[in-house]
Amino acid sequence: MSSTETKNETATEEIAAEIKGKLIPIYIMGHKYEVPETLTIMKAMEYAGYKFIRGCGCRDGKCGACSTVYRKPGDYHIYNALACQTQVEPEMYLTQIPFYPANRAIYNYEELTPVPEEIFKLYPELFRCVACNACTKICPKDIPVMDVVSYLKQGNITKAAELSFDCIQCGLCASRCMGELPQYHIFQLARRIYGGKIAPKAKHLAEAVIVIKDGKYDEMLHELMNTDEKELRKIYEERELEPEITGEDWRPKDRKFLLEVES
């Protein structure tokens, strides 16, 4: 086929060498390397010859394995990055922080009650926060980390759970904390308390579990399992599709594979 196809299908841009572009100097833990300016920090490190064991995970900004801090020349700020999501800049001085020790409390989730005191008891260091806001500044997911700590101190678990939802548990907040808080572990606890003990339970789900466990659909399913492919194709093609833009009150006209359970 066309030559364009070949181009798309060898598109493993992971192979950094394929990428052309102007070379710029960066400093990986102090050592200078010339790398193409279009690369992410992660691909630039691979280009330079690093082979990751730590410091590399999903390569998609979702997992928190590749936390990186860096400085720029003539600038006292410390900047943060996920190495897989951030493009290199000339003269940046960088290091990865693939691991940072943080205290994690062990608890019995079943026995927890949805009150803030549970969190205070497990993580008394919460009150060591000095509101310096270094955690918020370093967060690569732009979570208002210090605000979440404040909400927890005020006992607002719901707000803390919502605001910390994007946390990827990279640990950069803990690395900067003057009060030595393990913010990301505390927030995980808050989210689990919210998700399992504050948010209202799904009634329809509990009902579905009982009915299905009870084997009410087994006969119907066994019938499908024993239907030949030709007939199965027909049933498949004829099944009614729920329209995209509908509310929760939509009901199908064809009730062939439904039982009369209305919630």
């Binding site: 299905i212 659909y217 119907m220 939509w250």
Partner: peptide, 11 residues
């Protein structure tokens, strides 16, 4: 299939 009024494990 958690909404059995319109869905089922069969679908």
């Amino acid at each position: 299939a958690s909404k059995l009024e319109k869905d089922s494990p069969a679908y």
